[in-house]
Design a binder for these strands. Structure first.
Lengths: 307, 307
DNA sequence: ACACCGGCCGCTCAAATGAGCGGCCACTGC
DNA sequence: GCAGTGGCCGCTCATTTGAGCGGCCGGTGT
């Protein structure tokens, strides 16, 4: 096709797609038949004069997300094309997760919030969230400015709902201390609310390779013992093996939503990415504890290959 | 709009634009109403999930070309977005001009060919040209491998039509020599054919600033004299002043199509670009000798500003 | 509590659209 | 010269599409 005809095709395409004129109108304008205009438009597509791109502005890969969702039978899955740099990746995943929460959470919900570095970057992108209670799901592990309490505070500040923080460590040294903490009024109230949680955002901790706040806060010999029992991942204090089965042994010393209650939550969304988390995420998916997943595209591909 | 809805919108857009499914079909697929699909598509446009670009692959700026054409009342105008580098620019203009010739020239035509560095790069992109006579419009000025004869030969090699080269210099020292040359059998035949030319491709030579093979091949004092007479441009040996008027004085010593015959040609397409040629092109347009123009976008903008 | 209001949704109907059909024209081979 | 052939073009008709209408629902102000 020569430039003369190309020009005409481009003109027709512009009128049609940008000026929203119908083919019949364009035909009148340019003294052509409706059919000539239609053929010109077809040709414009064939020649690459008109190009249509479908791309999610947030960086979500729709096709990959859909494959991920179907493959693992999840309710939701979002595979985000992110930067390689972990900090940037966390910010990008946080943004998508924040938007997703805005979609998913209604006023009738009760939102449970766990902890993770990626979860920590949710608030900075969280602008729209229905007013509902925000409940902390686990005790604190992390710095003063970056921990679950802070996250719960920031989320509730955005949506204006009542916050239920847990001012206690994630794991304590013995069962007695844990029991004592659990009976503390504020903590007991939060733990009681765990029964009413309808949506939860959680991170996934990895034990092999180790990338988990909980793992880090345990003494070495205990890590060894648990690893020997096949611990691969950790979700809200619940330890999982490669098959996704719950590994017992720490539940009595954790201040966190217990596994059976977590399983009752109608919608648990896991957020996390990076190569180190892949096996852990796979375990989390297999456990059936999580219903949604927000991760990076590379991890998503890997998950599809492995699982 | 949250990522959930965005995903759906992207899915709908993909199905609609890439899989060419109708909105009703998509509605069935996804268990939505036809209207929801329509709204999703609208939203996808509004959110920038679907982007449509209209761009001529050859680099022709359709809008600018159209403005150029209308502004100067030309039959055709092509403004090409080119590289700044003159050699690359000439190749790009040559390609567009070649494609244009393929469009414009029919078997019933007789194609006249002048000379210019940009015209010289037409053959390398010329693949499709109706079989018709190819006639040289001017004598030779240039190197052995780059001149009008060579150009005519290459063009006729592509279209398989009879070639009428002119083996003579563009300008000679005196009227007698010119007359002698014109009566040479081969040359006379070509000159006779000038009456039958229906399409012509020409370059535009500039005298101020000087950028013209003809200008260069004249002795300095003669250049001065002609410049004093207001010569601004040269088209096929015809000299033009700023207003586009023909400046007499050289016609008897040129071996080229005379101005009055050139004016008879139903379609003359000028090809050329670059900052140095702008004033000359303006003169050529004003002369009414040319009906079509292939130039670079920068020059086109400038022409619109000046003229 | 109840009526009001604004936004969202699906239906109707006329306009726009695309697939398929037949006619026209130019080219080809006898 | 002329029938056969292939490609291009515009028409018809069934389908798709979009503007506009009215109903529903949730929020709001008496």
């Amino acid at each position: 096709m020569g430039p003369e005809r190309q020009m005409l095709a481009a003109l027709v395409a512009t009128k049609h797609y940008f000026e929203k004129r119908t083919k019949s109108q364009i035909a009148e304008d340019l003294a052509l038949s409706r059919f000539q205009v239609a053929r010109l438009l077809e040709a414009a597509h064939a020649e690459g004069i008109v190009r249509i791109t479908v791309e999610l502005p947030s960086g979500v890969d729709a096709g990959l997300s859909d494959r991920l969702r179907r493959h693992f039978g999840l309710k939701r899955a979002l595979a985000v094309v992110t930067a390689d740099d972990p900090a940037t990746r966390r910010r990008q995943l946080g943004k998508v997760a924040a938007d997703l929460l805005g979609d998913v959470v209604t006023e009738d919900d009760c939102l449970g919030v766990a902890w993770g570095r990626t979860l920590g970057s949710i608030p900075e992108s969280l602008t729209r969230l229905a007013t509902c209670p925000v409940v902390q799901l686990t005790g604190v592990a992390g710095s003063v400015s970056e921990n679950t309490v802070e996250l719960v505070r920031q989320v509730s500040a955005v949506n204006g709902g009542p916050a239920s923080p847990i001012y206690a460590p994630f794991v304590v040294a013995d069962t007695t201390t844990a029991r004592g903490l659990r009976s503390q009024p504020g903590i007991a109230r939060a733990l009681e609310l765990h029964r009413t949680v309808t949506r939860a955002v959680v991170g996934v901790g990895s034990w092999d390779p180790p990338d988990s706040k909980m793992h880090d806060s345990l003494p070495v010999e205990e890590r060894r013992a648990l690893l020997a029992k096949g611990v691969q991942a950790e979700v809200c204090g619940t330890l999982l093996n490669v098959q996704g089965g719950v590994v017992a042994g720490l539940e009595d010393r954790c201040i966190a939503i217990p596994a059976d209650l977590l399983r009752q939550v109608p919608e648990v969304i896991a957020v996390g990415g990076g190569a180190t988390k892949i096996k852990a995420m796979l375990a989390a998916i297999r456990s059936g504890l999580i219903h949604g997943l927000v991760t990076d595209a590379t991890a998503a591909e890997e998950l599809l290959t492995l699982g």
